[in-house]
Amino acid sequence: MSKKNLPKDYFTRLQNQIIKDVNDIDDNLEASAPFLSCINKVNIYNVPDRYFVTNERNILNNQITKIMFLPKKIMGIAASLLIMISISWVVFNNTDQIELTAELDETVFIDYLLENTDDLDNATLITLNENNTISEEIDFEEISNEELSNYIETIVDDISIEDLAIINI
């Protein structure tokens, strides 16, 4: 179709009409959408009793959220602490034979961290793993209870009460 077959100023008027239509929807819903404007605009959904109180509590107490975003330092300390507690349990309860793997499987622990944390990269985890690897050549008979207690205390001193509460979740 050539231009001369169109009414004069067709495109200008079309553009103005479209803009007017769009603005009318906001300014005059009754005229532009009479069926829609007849529908009562109220909230048609409801929620269980006290839902928003419960929901707020759920969000704030979300344990996964808290453990997911523990700082690296706390995660490292937590790992060390768990391993030390595990060792001390073995040392205090079994002096004949030491079986570290029975109490804490590091692979499982590292896998858990990998799956549940965004903050720890592989390099950090490897370092953490290396630092916490217990040499099988250590003679645990030579470690006194006092030395072990002192070591645990030095680690615990670095952790605040709040951190311990989070770790215990």
């Binding site: 007849c38 529908i39 009562n40 048609i44 959904y45 409801n46 929620v47 269980p48």
Partner: peptide, 11 residues
């Protein structure tokens, strides 16, 4: 938890 009438459901 849905309270709408027929018109609201239609919307």
């Amino acid at each position: 938890y849905f309270d709408g009438d027929a018109a609201q459901l239609n919307l």
